[in-house]
Structures are given as structure tokens and as C-alpha cells.
Design a protein around this nucleic acid. Sequence first.
DNA 1: TAGTGGTCTAGACCACTTC
DNA 2: AAGTGGTCTAGACCACTAA
Lengths: 256, 256
Amino acid sequence: MHHISKVDRITEQLRSLISRRAFDGDKLPSEPELAETLGASRPTVRQALAALELDGLIIRRQGVGTFVNPNVASISTRLEEVWDFYEMLQDYGLPVNVDHVSLTLGPPEPDAAEALELAPAEDAITTANVFKSGDTPVIYCIDIVPARLVTQAYREEELHGPVYEFLGRRCGQHLEYTIARVLPVVADDTLADLLAIDPGTAVHYFIEVGFNDQDQPIIYSQEYYRPECFDFRVVRKMTSRLDLGDPRDELREEGL
Amino acid sequence: MHHISKVDRITEQLRSLISRRAFDGDKLPSEPELAETLGASRPTVRQALAALELDGLIIRRQGVGTFVNPNVASISTRLEEVWDFYEMLQDYGLPVNVDHVSLTLGPPEPDAAEALELAPAEDAITTANVFKSGDTPVIYCIDIVPARLVTQAYREEELHGPVYEFLGRRCGQHLEYTIARVLPVVADDTLADLLAIDPGTAVHYFIEVGFNDQDQPIIYSQEYYRPECFDFRVVRKMTSRLDLGDPRDELREEGL
DNA sequence: TAGTGGTCTAGACCACTTC
DNA sequence: AAGTGGTCTAGACCACTAA
């Protein structure tokens, strides 16, 4: 097991401080000051700041200082981040309930099988649940996990909720990142019933593949979000479009 | 005007090489090798690689090497990137056409005025256009720019297309990043007509605010994307949730 | 054992902003 | 002039992987 690096620790500390609005006037201490306070060298601090800057969370102005970017820091649900449904819904203050819809074992639908790189007819666990904030259904989610990943015995109830914990405890798999397709769909009768909305309402539909730290797909999810309950935002950067000529030339010289 | 830093140059060179699939077996040269080839020190190269890693574009395996992440590199339209509609649509191979819908000067709707931090009754330019790939309408876009930003004379036709160029040339403003709300909507008759789709179809709706390098809002856009034409994807990272205690303690010691 | 990436530091110098 | 962030290098040492 590896330790958390100083850079990562500092990054998360600063991230936490930013989200708690701990900086007067949104101005961070200077780099030398942070370095001394946090017990690190300036390059180490700068590495952490660079990560936060790429995130859009801070702005650095030469000769002036480093500042929190309020436009970004105030976003509650950034699309670039994966949340645990439980934790996300708990922030709403109401008790979180889960209605279990179905649980099956067998070859999944072709799209899922392909995304998970399953062998023909290979089995997977498919679990469907509705997450509720109080009595209001807000997310309908279908999760598919390759059966071969399950290395420990488990109780069925463990699949009646967020699957991330199950992946860690029963599969020894840690989700590192996901790639999500974001689609708009119109609720049909079935979905409208599950989310207690009117048929014909527009709904967010995510098709999401989760990967472990080896970049192997370990979970395929389909998620429907009740409208009005979520305010998904994404920070988008300009594609830089630098004019560099063909950079392959430089590497070709070395016979790459 | 400042130059492009070595780190940024290398980052973009590598990004370009990755998108051209210039690396055999998706394996990048070693860090010392890259450093020598690109004429930089190892820390400089590593800084570029760190940026690409945060982007999810590469994976680094200690003792093994650095690799392209094919899952991410193959994404055509990443939601975290802002594209110019013209360039984006040109990739489809068909000629890009623009139907101009309307152009008005005057105080915009309240949401836009607030997002752009306009004074009461302050004027803005509102331009609406439909972008077509060949004869197929694919994007309906309403752009709002504060009138005070316009510092040069311009022809109306310059507003019958992508506004980014107009912002640069006539306003001296460079778009750095945007924050987009992503919403699903059902096409009403008007929208269905503009995009030549059936009323009742689900459509992607972005409400996007663009900022300059001073973090001032300079453009407010509403965009509707024809379904089936775009495959928006986003790479989502796990929120790290490190257990750090309360990091404010450390900074308090210094009397922050 | 050799080669890879991971971590961290020290420090020089520059460019910019503010006073 | 003083203080801020920007850039870049040199180099030491560690941890991991593969042969």
C-alpha cells in the first residue's frame, strides 16, 4: 500500500479549505507562506496549486496573488466528479431510501457486455434500484457488474444500494474514474412511474462505464435523474489550438 | 504578450501526438528520453505529463512506463472542452451552413443579465443562429454579449456565425473557459421547426456562461443540439474523500 | 540488476503588480 | 523597492516491475 503524497495531501487540504470558504477575500496565502505553513518546498506547493488551477478552482495572478474562483467553487454538482448517491442525497437533509427493483444474474444486454469486455455468454450481476430523498424518487439506476469480479460471499441486500461499496468490499475493485455518455430522453410510462413524474417529461440519462486503476472496465451503469432535482454543471476549457507545426518531427529525429 | 511556456508547449505537443496515435503500442517514451528529445529537464516533462494525467489522457505505471489511455483518447466530443461550432461541424465532412434567425440590441432576459453582471437596463447584443451540417440543422444557438464590450465597428454578418471570433476581434476579449448547465428538454413546436425534428423529441440544452482570463463573464449562450448527432461524453473522477481531519488547524497556527 | 516512474528539495532567475 | 507568481534546472533518493 502506498502513502498519500505530500502534493496530494496539500491539494486536498486546500480543496477542503476552499469549499469551506476559509480564505478571507478569497485570497490564498502566498506560495512561500503556504510552503512554510504546510511544511513543504515551494515547488511542492506549486504542484498542488497547479492541479487546483487545472480544475478551475483557483486563479493565479502574477504579481498579485492566488485567488479562489467563486464561479467554480460555488458549483454544487460538477459533472466531472463521481458522487456516491447516498452521500449526494444526504446533503439534501432528508433521509435517503432505496427501493429495490430487480436483481438478476446472467448475460447482460449487448451494449453492457461489450463495454465490460465480457466473453460471449459471460455472466454479470444486474441490479436496479430507485433512490429516494425522503419519499421522492430522484434517481433510477441500473448497475451491471461482471460476475467473475465477485470474490467474496455477500448478502443480496448489499446490492440494494450504492454499488461502489460492494465493488470495494466484495470484489476488491476500486473505482478510479468513469466515462459517461450524457443523453436527454423522454420518460416513457415505465420510467415515469418509477420516478413519479409525468410521462413525456425530459430526463437526464447517463450511460456510464467505470474503470479501475488498471483501466479495466468493472461496472456499467444506466442512470435516470429526476428533473429539477439536479443542477449538473461542467467547467469547459477552450481547446488550445496552439500552432505547433507537426510535432512528430521532433520525435522522429530520435527514431521513435 | 507572454510566450508559451515550455511545459505548455510540451503538453500540447504530446496531446497532439496522442490524438494522432503516434505512439507504438500506446506506450510513450520514458521520461528521461522525452526530456532529452524535447530539450527540457525531467521535472519540466513531468509537469506536462501530470497535466495530461489529470486529463485522464495518459496512465503512468511505476516501473513500467507511460501509456495512452485509449478509453479517453478515443472520445470525440468531450464535454469538458469548448469547441468552435464551425470546426466541430467541419469534421463531419459536409459543408457548414448558418441560418441567421435574429439579431437584437437591448436589455436581455433577466437570467442573462444577471449572469453577465449587467447594470439595470444595460444593453446587450443578442444573436440567434442555426448551424447546419449540409442541409441538416444540428445546433440552435442564442448568444448574448454585453454591448459595452464591443470596442470596434463590425458588420452585422460577423454575428451570423460563431461568436468566439467576434469576441476576439471586435471586443478584444479572449474566452478562457465556460461553465455550462446541462439540461434535457422536450422540443416544442418552435424548436422542432428550427432543428427539423418531431415535436416532443428530447434535446440537449446547454446554458453556458463564458469567462475571460480575468474571470469576468463575457458571453451568455443557450444551445440546443439535435439528438443523434452528438455523442457527448465526460470523464468523471472519484471525489477523493481523504480523511484529513480539519485542515484549518494547520493554517490557523500561522494566524491566517 | 537495470530501467521505469514517484517524490521532494534547493535555488536561480524572470515578469509582473503595487506602492 | 518589495513582494508576488512564472519558469526551469539539477540532482538526490525511493518504489516498483520485469528480466
